[in-house]
Every structure is written in C-alpha cells, then in structure tokens.
Design a protein around this nucleic acid. Structure first.
Lengths: 130, 130, 130, 130
DNA sequence: GTGGTCTAGACCACG
DNA sequence: GTGGTCTAGACCACA
C-alpha cells in the first residue's frame, strides 16, 4: 500500500485492485466530501501518471469516467477542472450512495438479515476509514 | 437473466458476472437462509452443469470454493452435501456479513456520510431482493 | 466420523478419504500393534461390507492389498486369516515405518528444517492418536 | 522424472501426482527455504506453462493456491510476486510443519511406535532430499 | 504483456 | 454414477 501526494490529492494505491478504479474512487471521494473546490483544476493525465508511476492510459480511463459522471469538464488547452455545478456533485453523490445501499441491502437480505440486523451491524462495525 | 430450477435451488444466471461466482453466491445464500437443510445433498457437478447449460468445470470451481468455506462436504462417489455443522454455517454467515458491512461503511464514509445517514438510507432503500 | 465394531476391529470411517485406504490402514495397524493374533480369522468381505455399510468392492480392494503386503492369507472356503509368520508382520511394519519416515523427513527438509528441528517438533506435537 | 530450470526455480515434474500440486509444493519449498527473496517476481503463468510443457490452467491453479496461502501477490498486468511479508511466510511454514508432524506422529503411533522410536528412525533415515 | 474466466472434451479414482 | 485432473484453445480486463 503506497501513499502519494499529488496536488490537492493524496492517493493510496494498492496493486491488487484495478488501478484506474482506485484513482477514480479517490477523486470522486475528494469531490464528494468537498475537499477540492468547485472549478478547481486537477492534475493533467501525464502529471498524475508520472507521480503515481502508472501508465497514462490508466489515468486517462479514470478521467474519462469522471467526465461521464459529470464531475469534471475538459477545457481545450487548459486541462481538466472540477465541475462548477454544485447540483452535479450533489446528485452524483446521492446516486452513488443509493447504489451502494442497494448493493449492501441486497447482499445482507440474501443472507437472511433484516433491516434491524443491518443497523445493528453497522453501528457496531469498526470502519477502517482511510 | 435466466431463471432455472434445479432440485431445491432456483438459479438466476446473468452473463455480466463470473458464472462460478453467481453459482457460489446463490448456494451460499440458500444455506445461510436455511432454505436447504443440514446434511442435505446438493446437485451433482454434472447435473447442475447440464441444468444451467454451463461447463462442469465452472460448477466444480464453485463447489470447491463452497467446500473451502466449510459449507459443504464431498463424499466419494456419492456427491456433495451441506455440512452437518450448524456452527460452520453460522460462523461463515457472520463473517460474510461483517465483510459486507465494513465495505459498505467504508464506501459511505469515503463519500462523507455518517452512520446516521447510512441508517436513513438503508431504511429507505427499496431492496430489489429476489 | 462414524465408529463401528466388527469382530476384533473397531473402524472409524470418514467419508472424505478413500474408504478402502481407511479400512486397509486400520487393519494394518491392528496387526502391527498385535491387537489381533497370528493366524486369526478376519471378517469376510461380505460381512465387513454390510457392517460398514460399504460396497463389497471397497472391502475387496483393501483385502487384496493386505494379501499383497503379506499380512493375510486366503484359505479356500474358509475365509481370510492373518498370516502365521511373525517375520512377515515385523518386516512389513518396519518397511511401512521407514516409508513414513522418509516421506516426513523429505517434506521437512524441503521446508528447510534440520533433523534437530524435526525432533523438537515431534516431541512437542500433541498427537491426536485415535 | 523430468528436471527443468525456469528462472530461479528448478522443477522436477513427475506424472504420478497432480501436476499442479508438484508445482505448488516446489514453489512453496523454495519460498520456505528462502531461496527466493521477498517481493521477487516469479515466472508468469504462460512462461512457466511453456517451460514445463504444461497447460497454463494447471500453472494457474497452483498460483491461485499460493495466493490463498498468503505466499504471493498478483499485480495487475505485471505478474506474480512473492509476498513482502516475512511473517506470512514464517507462519505458513510453521503451520505446514505442524501439519506434517501430526500426520507423521499419528501414523507411527498407529503402528505402535513411541516417540523415542520415531526419533531413532529419523536420525537414521537416509533422506532423499533433492 | 499480465492474469481471469469459460468451454469442450478426455481420462482417472472411487464406489 | 460421483468428483478430480488435465489439455487445448477462446475471449476478456488491465497495464
């Protein structure tokens, strides 16, 4: 598990999972938590690739996904910027949360747990948040 | 999405995920929910393979994983049976639940949500449970 | 793990290993430890098969192996008997012991352990002898 | 019995046992004996398969087992590497040694030998170590 | 290039 | 009939 700072981001890269997903998730999280301001510039593909010692294609793929999510915008010749629309961010965030919840609820129900059980488990889980 | 009955099981197979994982998960769930009794026989590798129109090796892989989980036992020349140990099942079930919870809590925290938020989301999620 | 008495033998049968090997090993052990006398009659294939709820072929295979080991003799129309030769038993026993030792020593050496290490491990192993 | 060098490994493959087990055991041993360094790359699935004239799936199966043992880690698109954790190796090694000892002690006791006998046998066994 | 999944079909050990 | 091992060769995801 490597930790590396690039611009406003701190990346933790773990080679046992898809790299592009990790980059994607970590930028998404930063934006969702408001750690990076609206309209702010994010590192160029090349820059980030070099900093993370990763293939530029890998970073590119993460950036494409971010743009499809509506979280970033490319400006020709200037680079990639966080969207200036608060709404885009908020709606993306709740969409993601909903997806996570549905996944979780389905899995737990498939094991035979009720909503009460889930709430109990959650309040007693020791989150290893990064 | 195909649905197909085999013995006590109803399988839903979907080509967007590894087949062996789906088979694995669906048997795990049946066992966890107690839908199939302790010591009960499950379909033979070949039988299930034919019913699901899947290669026997694919089923075999799922069955090997089930055994490694302690949920089943093979009996030479007789087939594969659910373990007779309630404890094995219970401990497997709570282990899995804990893993799911940690994953979920981590993801939600990384989006900036609190435990209260999570509980709210869960009680309002419309689970698509099968 | 089932336990079942047949004549002078107590069998413990475990369905996750080859049945014929277990029968073979348990008869071998009884003979090696002198729990059954020279020249004594052992149960017929049919009788043992019924007692152990096992296919006669399975018992047959174990009995053939015993005869090849020189531990038993068939007498036409009378059944199968432990050899009357002390030497046969003694030489079989030490042959088996030697095979076990070589296997063990090789495995431990392949892990990088010395003979001293092995002796230490053995004197500290809590044998789960049946 | 064929002998074949691949990278830092010398493999002896013999058709009387499952091929994947032999590959597995020989890599385990190399790691346990420290013949291959922490974090070192091992041959790719394809490379080893070609060198040993074996199907890639057979090598893959051995590699999956190694990973489950905690002895190796996969890095996407880069290959398979020995773990960098000394502890993983040490604990795996002693776990394996213990299993071997218990097996051996049980077998010898079932023949009626005492611990003293075993020690005598071991110190006089002519190990065929490779 | 790496590993991961899947298929089709062969042969073996065990019961 | 059961499960277990192996091969040959396809296609995919990731870097």
């Amino acid at each position: 598990m490597e930790e590396r700072k690039v611009g406003s981001f701190v990346f933790q890269i773990d080679l046992s999972q898809p790299l592009y997903e990790q980059i994607l998730d970590q930028i998404r999280s930063s934006v969702a938590r408001g750690e990076i301001g609206l309209g702010e510039k994010i590192p160029s593909v090349r820059e980030l690739a070099i900093s993370l010692k990763v293939n530029p294609n890998t970073v590119m793929r993460a950036y494409q996904e971010l743009e499809r999510d509506g979280l970033t915008e490319k400006r020709r010749g200037q680079g990639t910027f966080i969207t200036t629309s608060k709404d885009s961010i908020a709606s993306f965030k709740s969409e993601l949360a909903e997806r996570y919840c549905l996944e979780f609820v389905d899995k737990m129900k498939s094991l035979g747990y009720t909503e009460k059980d889930m709430i109990h488990w959650i309040t007693h889980a020791k989150g290893v948040n990064k």
